[in-house]
Nucleic acid binder design. Structure first.
Lengths: 202, 202
DNA sequence: ACCTTATGTCAACGATTGTTGACTTACAAT
DNA sequence: ATTGTAAGTCAACAATCGTTGACATAAGGT
């Protein structure tokens, strides 16, 4: 009587598939993660992975939504933003527990044609829009610049594994990033003299 | 007598293939660009595209080397860096001539497993290493942070096409980016009180 | 007992991809 | 005339991928 369900599998196995998928999408891009890889980890057939989420894209969408829950930009004040972002960026060093890194999953699949739309959408909804709202609607580029720095640093740390970056001192690096974000926040539209540090500009 | 040549095609057609390949790799990632797409543009067979460069990876490597020639970090002084980088970032707006954007090609294929190694290598050789040398070997993270910002901004502008970023005022955005880079350069190792703006760190 | 529904598996399809061997054509040198 | 080499085509291969139809199994409801 009722229409045939397109998405099957709502029980425990579905959660295990979702968890395995998150781990895979943390380590490789959308295109480089095969449904067969995930299926092998869970110990089920490929077809069941597919049907549990309707399509590979459906699975990835659910991965992004699930992992995105950890994000909490709205709870922060502008004052706390720089330190909080910097801390989250280097979180991987401190605690080695199994918590997921939402930004990393998005960054991993940035360049994929098939996943690009979803990545762009979630990145806007979870990071850029909230941050822009925090700054007010005027000058939306400031928020975008901060997010750009975060994305770039995530790329630098996770995608390209450069020794000079990975082996850098975590504490001072975190402070540098925090100050950089701070600098972007404090930057005004009017050109303004910098008083801190020696002036390297002519 | 002599060993069989693996790479064929050193004449004019090879250059046309290379040019077409550059245009494709500027618009899509390594995995999303097919040799057949390039071949169709040039008007030759797929097999000839492949054999002219030995492999798809060989073609991509040559694309990166050819496009990388345009880079000129070493010629700049530290003083000129912020403005120069910011200008290059927004170059697409001003002139619409057909010059290539080397950073964009690298950014486009950041997340590809197959191209990741080459991207990482060229990014180091052409941008990060020269910039680190300019800052001196101590504190290599400062150079990496600047490059991170550039990469992030390129991602923001070209990969995710967010209206709030694309429609932002080019002039003031360029100034903001230049000031952000400036701020990273001026930041010192010692934790130091900021006198401009309110101190947002606890 | 009967029917339904959810959970899975198995095998295969269709499309795409980089790659390769064989062939043709043309031009230049011996 | 013959040989050799570069340019370019054609057809096909092998692998991978997401996807789908058919089937088996077990549990619950009536």
């Amino acid at each position: 009587m009722s229409v045939k369900k397109v998405v099957r599998g709502e029980g425990e196995t579905r959660q295990r598939i979702l968890k395995a998928a998150i781990e895979h999408f943390e380590k490789a891009s959308y295109d480089d993660v095969g449904l067969r890889d995930i299926a092998a980890d869970v110990g089920v057939d490929v077809a069941y992975v597919h049907r549990s989420f309707g399509s590979k894209e459906g699975l990835f969408r659910e991965v992004l939504l699930t992992a995105g829950k950890a994000e909490s930009v709205s709870e922060l004040t502008v004052d706390e933003l720089p330190a909080a972002f910097a801390r989250q960026l280097f979180q991987r060093e401190h605690d080695a527990d199994g918590d997921i890194e939402p930004l990393l999953i998005l960054v991993r699949s940035l360049t994929s044609r098939k996943a690009g739309g979803l990545v762009s959408e979630r990145l806007s909804a979870e990071l850029i829009d909230p941050l822009q709202a925090k700054f007010g609607d005027s000058d939306p580029f400031r928020a975008a610049t901060i997010i750009s720095l975060l994305i770039g640093l995530s790329v630098m740390r996770n995608l390209l594994k450069l020794p000079s970056v990975s082996e850098a001192d975590v504490i001072s690096s975190e402070k540098l990033v925090a100050r950089a974000i701070e600098g972007i926040i404090n930057s005004t539209d009017t050109s303004q003299a910098h008083e801190s540090g020696k002036n390297v500009l002519a």
